[in-house]
Computed example of a mutant assay.
Amino acid sequence: MAELLASWAAEERWMYPAFLSMYAVIYCVGQLGLFRRWEWRHRLDGASCLISLAHGSAAAFAAVAAIAAQPAGNRGFAAPNSRIQDHVLDYSIAYFTMDLLHYLAFLPGDILFIAHHLATLFVFFTCRYVVYHGAYALLVLLFLAEVTSLLQNVWTLAGIWRTEVPAAARVYNTLSPPFYVLYTIVRGVAGPLFFLKMSLFYLSGQAVDLIPWWVRVSWIIVVGAAITVSNFWIWNLWKTLFKERKQSIGKKDT
Rank of each mutant, 00 (worst) to 15 (best):
L4P: 00
A10R: 13
R13C: 08
R13A: 14
Y16S: 05
P17V: 05
A18T: 07
S21P: 01
M22C: 02
A24D: 15
Y27V: 08
G30S: 09
G33F: 11
R37V: 11
H42E: 12
R43Y: 09
C49L: 14
G56F: 02
A60L: 03
A60I: 02
A66P: 01
I67A: 01
A69N: 09
I84V: 15
V88A: 07
Y95P: 08
F96L: 12
P108M: 11
D110W: 11
F113D: 15
I114Y: 10
A115W: 13
F122V: 14
F122L: 15
R128H: 05
V130T: 12
Y132L: 11
A135R: 03
V140K: 01
L144K: 03
S149R: 01
L150S: 13
L150H: 13
T156F: 14
L157T: 11
A158C: 10
T163D: 12
A168M: 13
T174K: 10
P177N: 02
Y180C: 07
Y180P: 01
V181Q: 03
L182G: 04
L182S: 07
I185W: 08
A190G: 04
G191F: 00
L193P: 01
F195N: 06
L196F: 09
M198Q: 09
Y202E: 06
Q206F: 01
I211L: 08
W214R: 11
I220N: 03
I221G: 01
I221Q: 04
V223P: 05
G224P: 05
A225I: 08
I234A: 02
T240E: 12
S248E: 14
D253Q: 12
